[in-house]
Write a protein that binds this DNA or RNA. Structure first.
Lengths: 237, 237
DNA sequence: CAGCCGCCTTGATCCAGATCAAGGTTTCGC
DNA sequence: GCGAAACCTTGATCTGGATCAAGGCGGCTG
C-alpha cells in the first residue's frame, strides 16, 4: 500500500535547517523525504502569553516558551495537570474523554503541522509511533509523580519539588553545583493551582525558603536557587 | 526486511480460543499468524492476592483480578498511582525513571508473553503501536483526572469518585439506573493511600454515605451503590 | 507623576482532615 | 472454640493549610 516517493536525494528543508527540534520530538524520527513533505505543510508562528491553544488537529513543536495544561471542575476549581517546555511537542491522537485546555504561559514560538500527515507516515515508519509512545509514557510518569506529591507531600515539599522541576526544564544545561536562576513562567495563582494549595500558602513557603537562604527572590517572577542541595533535601522523596 | 511466514491459513490457537482478551488489548491488533506465534510464547498463570509483579520484560493480559501500581517516598509514604482491572494489560517499554511497583490486589489470572516478540511485530503491524499508544494515553488521562481529585477535591468528593471508578471498572455492564454492587478489591489503607487521606477519614466518609442512604456496606469488602445518581452529585466534577 | 489595578505578601483566625485513643469485628492458627 | 492479630469504626483533640483581612509594590493610563 505504501507509495514510492521522494526517491531522489532530498536536502534538509530551509524551515528545518536551524530548527531546535530538528532531531528531537517527532521530527527526529523522520526520513529526509518525510521531513521535506512535513515541512511543506508546517507553519512556524508566535503566540502571546495567555493565548489558548485549542486542539485543532495539529501537532506543534514548542520551539520556545511554556504551555500549561489544565482540567477544570464545574464549580471553577482548576488543576494544572502538566506543562510543555521547549523543546517539546504538543498534540495527541485519541481525544481525551475529559477536556484538557492548553494555554501559553509565556510568549512562544510553535511549529505546527497536521496530524493526518504524521498518521499516514506512521504506517511505514514505526519509529514515529515509538516516539509518540515514549512521549506519552514520559508524561504518564510525570503525572504519577505529581499524583504522589499532591496526595502525600506537605506544602513545603510541594513548593521545593515544583522549583526543582521548573529549574530542570527551563535550564537544560543544569549546572549541578552552583546556583541556578530562572524566570518563573507562572503566577502565584498558577503555582497554587498546580500544587493544590492557595496563593497565600505558596507565598509563605517561598518566603520561608528565602529567609532560610535556600532561594533568592530577585523579583516576583525571577528566582535564584542558592542551594540546590538544600532544596533537594526539602523535596520529600 | 520482513520475512514471509505463516502464509498458510492459520487457525486461532487453542490457548486463545475462548480468551477474554482475544479481541482487546494487544491481541486484538494481531494478525492470525502473529497470534499463533505469540500464543506459542505465552503462558497463562494464576497469582495470589499480595503477589508482587516485578517488571520481567513481559506484557501480561489481565484476564481476571485487579493490580495496583504504587510509588513510594523514602520515608514510607505511599501513593497508589493506578490500577489495572481485567480486561486490561500490564507492562510497558521504556523503563520509568522512578520505580513503580505492581502488586496483585486479588487472586488473578494473567497471560504473559515477552515484550521482544511484540517489539518485533510492531515493525510491520503499526496497529500494535497504536494500541500501546492509546493505552498509554488512557492511563495518562486517568492519572490527570486523579491529579485533579488529589489536588482540589474534598475527602467526601474523593471517596465518591473512587467508588464510581471502582464500579465502572469492576462491572463493565454498568446497569445505569439500578443499584450496583461489588467487592472492593482494596483495604481501607489502600483506599487511603490512593486518595491521599487517612484510613479514619475514609472510614468516616463511607459511614456517612451509608447513613445518608447512598451506599450499603454489606460487609467491609462488599459495597452496594444504592443511588448512583446521588453518588455522582457528590463526585464534585 | 498621580492614581488605579492586578498581583503579591504578611498577619489573624478558622476548620477539614490528621492524629491520638479506644474499642469492635473478622479471620485464622492451634 | 479460644486467643490473638489484623483490620475497621467511632470519638476526642490537634494542626497544617485555608480563609479572611489588610496593606505593599510595580506597572500602566491619562
Amino acid at each position: 500500500m505504501a507509495v514510492i516517493q521522494d526517491a531522489q536525494p532530498v536536502s534538509i528543508p530551509a524551515i528545518c535547517e536551524s530548527c531546535e527540534a530538528r532531531h528531537g520530538g517527532l521530527c527526529g524520527a523522520l526520513k529526509a523525504g518525510q521531513l521535506a513533505e512535513l515541512a511543506r505543510a508546517s507553519s512556524r508562528h508566535e503566540v502571546l502569553a495567555g493565548t489558548e491553544l485549542p486542539d485543532d488537529g495539529t501537532y506543534s513543536n514548542v520551539l520556545s516558551g511554556v504551555v500549561k495544561l489544565t482540567r477544570n471542575l464545574s464549580d471553577g476549581r482548576q488543576q494544572i495537570v502538566g506543562f510543555h517546555f521547549a523543546p517539546d511537542f504538543l498534540g495527541r491522537p485519541f481525544e481525551a474523554k475529559r477536556p484538557i485546555k492548553a494555554e501559553a504561559l509565556t510568549k512562544m514560538t510553535l511549529c505546527s503541522f497536521p496530524r493526518t500527515i504524521i498518521d499516514r507516515m506512521m504506517d511505514d515508519t514505526p519509529q514515529i509511533g515509538q516516539r509518540l509512545l515514549q512521549h506519552a509514557l514520559n508524561e504518564l510518569d510525570e503525572a504519577r509523580d505529581w499524583m504522589t506529591a499532591l496526595g502525600h507531600k506537605t506544602a513545603s515539599e510541594k513548593v521545593a519539588s515544583f522549583l526543582l522541576m521548573i529549574a530542570r526544564n527551563i535550564d537544560p544545561a543544569n549546572h549541578p553545583a552552583g546556583s541556578i536562576s530562572f524566570d518563573l513562567p507562572l503566577s502565584r495563582a498558577d503555582i497554587a493551582d498546580f500544587l493544590g494549595l492557595t496563593i497565600e500558602t505558596v507565598s509563605r513557603e517561598l518566603s520561608r525558603l528565602r529567609s532560610d537562604g535556600v532561594i533568592r527572590i530577585v523579583n516576583k517572577r525571577h528566582i535564584s536557587l542558592e542551594s540546590v542541595a538544600q532544596l533537594e533535601e526539602r523535596r520529600g522523596d
